[in-house]
Every structure is written in C-alpha cells, then in structure tokens.
C-alpha cells in the first residue's frame, strides 16, 4: 500500500513566550525552536506502520523553505522512502492555497492513502487535509484514531467528542486526518536523521506547478493577532474559609467550568 503523508514544520510554543511580530499579524519566530507538527508526527508513524505491515512505500511532502527539510529528513529517518518539498517562495498561504498546491503535486503520484495531521499547531485551523481530499476527489475522514486496511476498503475509527468513537468503512483511495494518540511515534535518533540524508528528496518551486492565480489567492486573512490578558504570580485570596470558597467558586465558573 502506497501512502503519502503531508507534514509541516511549526514553531514549538508550549513553554515559549510568544512575541507578536511588528506587522501585528504573526509572531517573531527567531527564538523559537522549529519542529514537526505533533499531529503530523503521528501521521508519519501511522504511514510507516502501514508500510511495515502491508508493504508499499511512504512519501512525505511538505510546503516550506529549505529549513523545513528538517521535518522531511525526520520523516525519512522514521521510515519514509522519499520526500518532496514544495518551495512556496514568498507567497502568502492559507489552508486553501496549501491544499491546492498539495493537490497539484499529489495528483500525479501513485497512492492508496493520503494522511495528514488533524491540524497544525500554528494556525490550528485543521482544514488542509479535507480540502485536499475534496480537490483530489478522495473519500475522507477527520480526527482518525485507527486505520486497518481491508483490501479496497479500510476500517477506520474516528474520535468524536465526549468519549465516543465512530467506526466506519471507507473506500480507498482515501484521505485521513490523523489524531494524536493513534500510535506511539518512534524515537528518531540523530544518527537516523543523518543517515536519512542519503534518501531521495525532491524540491519543486511552486511556480513550476502551473497553478492558476485564483488557486494561489488566500481565502482568509489574519488582520491582527493579540495576546490573551496577562497573568502574573498568584493573586492571594484572603479572608475566612467561607468567603474564600465563594470567591473560588466564582473564579472557577468565570473560567468556563460549570460546577
């Protein structure tokens, strides 16, 4: 089974202090560590697991500058066979444009399954995968936590809200957006990454794809980004137990928890 997996490099932000860029529509990325988007990491692992059990190939694709080849090399080290980087140049991208670019490249490849992460941990929009599916005319499912190929079909598990999963059968070729926790991504050693340098990595500039200007025009635009209100140290709540308790309940409710 041939699998294509789309990956993206994103800044790691969990413990970082984010600074808004001068234009006010993005963040300063200089001090941030770039890494593979967490969801994509699971998608690559899933692709490699499928290859290991079913045979076939895995191709990893990303759109990004040459630094983002790191995530491709990582995917290669995990077990992907070849990698493609599409260089967008200075173009402004949104989920729609990204899906159009990917579709144009993937259209000419051999595959039974396309995997993406559910979303990327930068814009958190979670639309590229399913847009790509629709553009390619593939069957699709989002937030997938289980894939078992069964001939022309695959039995899949989708994670719904509130502790419920939905099991269904889907016709291949298909596109699935992969949810974290579907597997345990393997550790990728530095040596493994260095060795993966020998595998095939193709670079395609976006300009060579012959996409229409309409396809390359973003449908949405970030006008402004802003920080949530700042918190500093603990605000001590004083008083007798009863008033403290009342205050705590008020705070908890304010934070959107119903008790």
């Amino acid at each position: 089974m041939d699998v294509i997996v789309c990956v993206k490099q994103v800044p790691e932000v969990i413990d970082a202090d984010l600074k808004i860029s001068r234009e006010g529509t993005g963040i300063e990325k200089e001090d941030l560590v770039m890494h593979i988007n967490d969801w994509d990491n699971y998608a690559v692992e899933e692709a490699v697991c499928i290859k290991e059990t079913q045979g076939g190939t895995v191709t990893a694709i990303t759109i990004g500058d040459d630094e983002s080849e790191d995530v491709l090399r990582r995917a290669l080290a995990m077990g992907a066979d070849k990698a493609i980087r599409i260089d967008p140049g200075e173009r402004e991208l949104d989920g729609f444009v990204i899906s159009k670019i990917l579709a144009k490249v993937i259209k000419d490849l051999e595959y039974h399954l396309v995997l993406t992460g559910v979303q990327a941990d930068d814009d958190n929009s979670g639309m590229v995968g399913i847009m790509l599916a629709e553009t390619l005319g593939l069957s699709h499912a989002a937030v997938v936590t289980g894939v078992e190929p069964e001939g022309d079909l695959a039995r899949i598990r989708v994670e719904l809200e509130g502790g419920m999963d939905e099991v269904s059968r889907i016709q291949l070729p298909s596109l699935l957006t992969i949810q974290t926790g579907i597997n345990e991504p393997r550790y990728v050693s530095i040596m493994g990454i260095r060795k993966a340098g020998k595998k095939e990595l193709t670079v395609i500039p976006v300009a060579n794809l012959g996409l229409s200007e309409d396809d390359l025009t973003p449908r949405t635009r970030i006008e402004e980004v802003f920080l949530p209100p700042e918190t500093t140290g603990a605000e001590m709540i004083e008083g007798d137990a009863a008033s403290v308790a009342a205050e705590l309940i008020k705070i908890i409710k304010e934070k959107g928890v119903s008790i």
């Binding site: 559910v118 639309m127 590229v128 399913i130 989002a142 994670e159």
Partner: peptide, 23 residues
Amino acid sequence: HTSWGMDLAPALSVKTGLPLATD
C-alpha cells in the same frame, strides 16, 4: 467545529467555492 464538522466544512468549502474559517 467537531470531528464531524471538521470532516464536512473543508470539503464543502471546496465544493461550493466559499471561503472557510474554522474553530
């Protein structure tokens, strides 16, 4: 913006040609 909505909205956006903002 649920698992089902995430499976539907982007596809619908491409199908209808209408722009989409999620979540």
